[in-house]
Nucleic acid binder design. Structure first.
Lengths: 334, 334
DNA sequence: TTGTAGGCGTTATCAT
DNA sequence: ATGATAACGCCTACAA
């Protein structure tokens, strides 16, 4: 691998001059510039980004921590972040936290030790205090789908309460009044706020939240099937089921069908997130669109603006979910 | 950020000694070792991995190029690679190629310029010759789901032909003889070999490949729906449909259902890959399990063994797919 | 076992 | 506009 020094020799200029033509900021005479360019070409010179990083104290890399690499939700998010960053010549270092506190912390330290210029986190287990302390360090921290008041300028978040509200509201609008709800783990802010929205819609409609028609799932498919099983086993009466995410909705749909339910006539089901497979389900799943891809792009833009001085980028830190009415929910048949 | 120099000062030893306690290979007396450890602790010292990389000419990072970040197929693969590598203290730099030749090449150069210790590629558009030339460079290259004879030691691949064979064979075993096939883009080796397997099964059963019951799709959902539409519009007679991947199978299932087909009685459908949502479809999709996650882990192990001298790892470069018989295919009803 | 010193390939600050 | 030269933080012969 050719070095900058060899280029300078072949071009008959100093090493500093070569560096200058690479970092286009300072002026170099056209003649010498051409000599340098030719020399680079001839040697097939590629700058060593590691050395550049060490000297400039800038790695051009941003760390990303997600809960899981598989899973449609994170995939969309990463795709958004990567494409935006890549276009700006930055690269991403991706690691996982598995929604466990120690693994999340370990992942974060890992990214920091790698000297990322910034880190974008989708963390669930770690505490607000930890994040606040973390953000006082020298590596800028950005949060996806998590809102921490003291860090609000660095948060890209979704109005989960609005989403929860829209989901239940859509069911209420279809005439349902006996509505079961399968929530996500309540330590996750997303899950908590979605439930808040559910409650809000019920209150607004003058309906009491029936504590028996409430189940806390695990955000996985099994959570949905177990939840529905629970409601059925208890012989409860309900015509609609709202789930705090699509995976659980899918599990519930499957369980319902296996137990002779005709969907959506016997039971209306609504999910949340609009992950890719929501549209593959049968019937296609009515859900709340969570624009994670767009949010990922925005997080990347925010980093580009804050950390890489890309001034004229317009930032929107707050996204609103929308209802995707499909076939898994339908007006109540009396 | 504390440097190794500050640690050495506080510990009252030389800088080299500090370096030694970090790189546990050379012996240091317990007493001085403890002094150093204490000093590190006190200063909250974290080695600068960039400087380490420059000095040691090892970045502890491996580059990964996939076609897409979203998409269940790649997600599984990356999850496998990342978990294995992460456990060994290496990290992954991920980028995308979008199945386009220039983007794939650009991605590869990008990873190399980052001085990755190795790169793991899932490329589709780039030529074998390019890969062969690439592998002569200083960065070790590993290929996922692509077999290039000259690079065979660095390939982790699936027996796609066997998979294609198993898919069609399963349908034949169920008594079907009029079998439509929706292939993937034939420039992709996976797609080509799956088709070969299909042909092989037909030949073995003494059935001629009916060229009218053949359609080339795009590996996306629309490819499946378009393919089935084509067969139906042409008023062709067939009782089973084999698709070269699950996305297309899903599209075909959807189209079939929308057009009054009762699945699987009116039409048996088989996919390929066993991506996550295959089990979410209705009816659940009979498909060929493609162990991408395991293959990702294996690719990581191969890198660990070759590049990072992790001697005692057992490598298996060749994976065999298996049939996942589910509900979308059933014995032919006469 | 420990210390000294040169080198890794750049960037950046001085001069000139 | 260009050229020396000192960082950047660490590794690693080579010496002691």
């Amino acid at each position: 691998m050719a070095t900058i020094y060899q280029v300078s020799e072949l071009a008959g200029v100093s090493l500093a001059t070569v560096s200058r033509v690479m970092n286009k900021n300072t002026r170099v005479s056209d003649k010498t510039k051409q000599k340098v360019l030719d020399a680079m070409e001839q040697l097939g010179y590629k700058p060593n980004s590691i050395a550049q990083s060490l000297a400039s104290n800038c790695t051009n890399s941003v760390g990303i921590l997600v809960s899981e690499l598989h899973g449609p939700f994170f995939a969309q998010m990463m795709a958004g972040i990567e494409s935006e960053l890549r276009a700006a010549g930055k690269h991403v270092i991706i690691t996982t936290g598995h929604s466990e506190e120690d693994k999340e912390q370990e992942g974060i330290e890992f990214l920091i030790s790698r000297r990322c210029d910034a880190i974008i986190l989708h963390v669930e287990a770690v505490s607000d205090d930890y994040l606040i302390k973390l953000s006082k360090g020298s590596t800028p921290v950005y949060l996806m789908s998590r809102y921490v008041e003291q860090l609000k300028d660095n948060c890209i978040s979704l109005d989960n309460q609005l989403g929860g509200y829209l989901a239940t509201k859509s069911i209420l609008n279809q005439g349902h009044t006996q509505i079961a709800y399968i929530a996500g783990p309540q330590f996750k802010a997303d899950a908590f706020n979605r439930l808040e929205g559910h409650k809000q819609a019920l209150v607004e409609a003058g309906i009491k939240l029936d504590p028996t028609l409430f189940y806390i799932g695990d955000f996985n498919e099994t959570g949905g099937s177990k939840g529905l099983k629970h409601f059925i086993d208890e012989k409860l009466s309900f015509t609609a089921l709202v789930c705090a995410n699509d995976e659980m909705a899918s599990g519930a749909m499957k369980y319902a069908r296996e137990h002779g339910y005709n969907l959506p006539n016997d039971l209306s089901i609504v999910g949340f997130d609009n992950v890719i497979f929501a549209n593959y389900l049968y019937p296609t799943l009515t859900t709340i669109d969570n624009p994670v891809g767009k949010m990922g792009e925005m997080a990347a833009k925010l980093v580009l603006k804050d950390v890489y001085q890309n001034k004229n980028l317009v930032i929107n830190r707050f996204f609103e979910p929308t209802l995707m009415q499909r076939d898994s929910s339908a007006p109540l048949i009396k």
